[in-house]
Design a binder for these strands. Structure first.
Lengths: 69, 69
DNA sequence: ATTATTTGTAAAATATACTTGACATAGTGT
DNA sequence: ACACTATGTCAAGTATATTTTACAAATAAT
């Protein structure tokens, strides 16, 4: 369950995973794992990502998640 | 930095913190802490809360968070 | 061919989300 | 007065998000 909306919003701004990670204050692996769908970030990180990419929560994280907790 | 949108959306459905917790599969204290603003839930939990209350992420969790990470 | 950048992935350590159990308080009803 | 429900809070434990270090593979450029 990859997050392709995130991946494409990042591509649209021509940012690498490392760039975005730095803008959000997290590690590159964290961004990678989120795009890959491996886990379940905190909402504050999601908000930081949204602000870095000029999107809202609904645009990047709503729908197509139906996992546990 | 309380989450009053959540508190009022819950009240609008006449649910106790315990009721909502049960619908989301978490403990009552977790809901209490989120409303109180103590922490930083995961996005999957936010999504579960939104679905239980018939709201979207933007409606309950966007704006007025400016904390760390 | 080689250098540089990006991405995918993994294991060990640390920070923190979340649970369980418990107690105190306020409100509502009998 | 007593029972009941909802909320606020705390301390100790467990689960998991996130970091750090590291390595391999793919792409683009020279």
């Amino acid at each position: 369950m990859k997050n392709l909306k995130l991946k494409s919003a990042r591509a649209a701004k021509d940012l690498s995973q490392g760039d975005l990670a730095q803008m959000c204050g997290v590690s590159r692996q964290t961004i990678n794992a989120i795009e890959k769908g491996d886990y379940n970030p905190t909402i504050n990180l999601c908000i930081a990502i949204c602000k870095a990419l000029g999107k809202t929560l609904d645009e990047l994280f709503w729908e197509d998640e139906k996992d546990e907790r």
